[in-house]
């Protein structure tokens, strides 16, 4: 199940990198409204973790969620169409950047409420195992989420009921502008320890290190171990959200930013490939994304008359709002 191929791992981080760069361009060009939370700099985490998963597994992500969805194998064209609010998007244009989901591959959605995914994934994994699947789950969240009560409640529930959930904390040092030191008493790993959850810290900028830690954790979880936590130390290369491109917020010292950007997961993984092989992957990714952009921009927009389609799975219809 595990994917140990360094080329595929490189392709994933490269795909996410270039996807995000193109998405930022589309934000600036006005084709993506509302902006995005770029995953730039953190690609190695989604790629490394998802390389440890099998087909029966499920994950839920965050507001900074494009990487998780792509690393799990969603179609970049339909993902981009979703960001552009098109009918062909993963969510038929109803979710956008912060809610992209693909249930067909176990992506139960990016989730824009910080700290929310842990309990949802715990329930989903428990339910799938009850139905006979050998499912493990991943809950991605940022350093900001470790101060949310509902996530800590989820730690307790998952540990208590021994639900195999890999809690992946992407510690990029900041929750928006709040540094970890200003928000986290104790430590992130210490929170896991309090619930008897095994925790490891890994270099989130090294995709293979993340993959190896994830493979080990998933192996223990499948063997009947309870949930585990990986704290992946990382750095976000770009803004918290693209709105920062217009309003400069002063919270990260420039030398810290350049030090952070120096450890680039795409370059680190790329250097593990022969030049020719890397160039071939780059070209293939470029072609894939060229096609994705064309697909997204050529796709139809949803009909305003259908604005509340899907509100109720039961088929209940809502009263219209007009006079």
């Amino acid at each position: 199940m595990t994917d140990a191929d360094p080329v595929r791992l490189y392709r994933t981080v490269r795909l996410i990198r270039r996807f995000e760069q193109r998405a930022v361009e589309l934000v600036h060009g006005g084709q993506i409204v509302g902006g995005i939370h770029p995953y730039l700099g953190q690609e190695g985490i989604a790629a490394g973790v998802c390389a440890a998963l099998g087909v029966d597994d499920v994950l839920a992500g965050t507001h900074r969620g494009h990487g998780h969805v792509l690393a799990r194998g969603a179609d970049p064209a339909r993902m981009l169409a979703e960001l552009c609010g098109r009918l062909t998007g993963l969510n038929a244009g109803r979710g956008g950047s912060m809610h992209a989901a693909d249930f067909s591959i176990g992506v139960l959605g990016a989730n824009a409420i910080v700290g929310a995914s842990g309990a949802i994934i715990t329930g989903a994994v428990w339910a799938r195992r009850r139905q006979g699947h050998d499912t493990v789950g991943v809950s991605f969240f940022g350093d900001g989420a470790v101060n949310e009560g509902m996530l800590l409640e989820a730690f307790n529930l998952a540990a208590l009921w021994r639900v195999p959930v890999l809690f992946v904390c992407e510690n990029n040092g900041y929750a928006t502008t709040m540094p970890v030191a200003g928000a986290v008493a104790g430590s992130i790993a210490g929170r896991a320890a309090a619930f008897g959850i095994r925790a490891v810290e890994v270099d989130g900028q090294d995709p293979e290190a993340v993959r190896d830690a994830s493979v080990a954790a998933v192996g223990r979880m499948r063997a009947g171990g309870g949930p585990e936590l990986i704290e992946a130390r990382t750095y976000r290369f770009d803004a918290h959200h693209t709105f920062e491109h217009a309003v400069r917020l002063d919270y990260r010292p420039p030398d810290e930013v350049s030090r952070g950007r120096a450890r680039d997961p795409v370059r680190i993984q790329g250097e593990r490939l022969p030049d020719a092989e890397r160039a071939a992957v780059d070209a293939e990714v470029e072609a894939t994304l060229d096609a994705a952009v064309r697909f997204a921009l050529d796709s139809p927009e949803p009909d305003p008359a259908d604005a509340l389609t899907y509100l109720y799975a039961s088929g209940l219809t809502a009263r219209a709002g007009g006079g």
């Binding site: 139960l108 309990a119 949802i120 994934i121 329930g123 989903a124 409640e153």
Partner: peptide
């Protein structure tokens, strides 16, 4: 007791746990 489950006093977690279980078909 698998199908009639006592929970810890964690309303937020068990409410979303139920959401997740429902997403997975229960």
């Amino acid at each position: 007791t698998e199908r009639v489950r006592d929970t810890p006093l964690s309303e937020q977690a068990f409410t979303s746990f139920a959401t997740g279980a429902a997403l997975a078909g229960l």
